[in-house]
Computed example of a mutant assay.
Amino acid sequence: MTLSHTDARTRLLELIKELAVVHGTVTLSSGKQAEYYVDLRRATLHHEASRLVGQVMLNLIDDAGVEFQSVGGLTMGADPVATAIIHSAQPERNIDAFVVRKAQKSYGMGRQVEGPDVRGRNVVVLEDTSTTGASALAAVEGVRTAGGNVVAVAVIVDRDTGAKEHVERESGVPYLFAFGKDELGLD
């Protein structure tokens, strides 16, 4: 059963607060210190939350009027988000997913972007949460090098630490997010 957009968003927010918000001093991938950590894999890989992630993120991107055929981002945070979106879209829409490796492989086909070819396709780069936007920008670069046309960056949780402005300035595409840290009670 698919929930209304509002109900799906409300329930996903509840699950993120319950499953993914961890309080205590942590060092983020950006190297910055924070008094909380949003471990979204605890939600994106959860049986109920995963379905809601797909629905909420697909609605977010569609509501922004973004036309795309493929979604993905830097492994590993973006992987379950992309999978949730493609499953949420089926069977009405044929959306593919891709994975961007941190570095190009030195063996096999030597690819940095894995999955169905992104060359010539409109793609949305995904991230589960973002602090500086560095991971999203690395994925944007990898996709562009592979010939994909990045049309947006979409994030489940924005930490309100400048990632939106940084990504938009550096990539030239809109940065969309489903939830801000204020909605998680993390102000």
Rank of each mutant, 00 (worst) to 15 (best):
M1E: 00
S4N: 01
T6S: 06
D7H: 02
A8E: 04
R9G: 07
R9H: 09
R11V: 10
L12A: 08
L13Q: 09
K17T: 12
A20M: 14
A20N: 07
V21A: 12
V21W: 13
H23M: 07
T25P: 04
T25W: 05
V26H: 02
V26C: 01
Y36G: 02
Y37I: 06
Y37V: 01
V38E: 07
R42I: 02
H47Q: 14
H47N: 05
E48R: 08
E48S: 15
L52C: 09
V53F: 11
G54N: 13
M57D: 08
L58C: 11
V66D: 14
V71H: 05
G73N: 00
T75R: 04
T75F: 03
G77M: 02
P80E: 03
V81K: 01
V81W: 00
T83G: 06
A84T: 09
A84E: 10
A84L: 15
I85C: 00
I85E: 00
I86W: 06
I86A: 08
H87D: 06
Q90N: 09
P91S: 14
D96M: 15
S106N: 11
S106Y: 04
M109T: 09
M109D: 05
G110A: 03
E114L: 11
E114N: 12
P116R: 07
D117K: 09
G120R: 05
V124C: 10
V124D: 06
V125C: 08
G133W: 12
G133M: 13
S135L: 11
A136P: 05
L137Q: 13
V140G: 07
G142C: 00
G142I: 00
G147W: 01
G148E: 04
V150K: 11
V150L: 10
V151E: 02
A154R: 03
V155F: 01
I156K: 01
T161M: 04
A163G: 00
H166Q: 01
E168T: 07
R169V: 03
S171N: 04
V173E: 15
F177M: 05
D182F: 10
E183I: 14
E183S: 14
D187L: 04
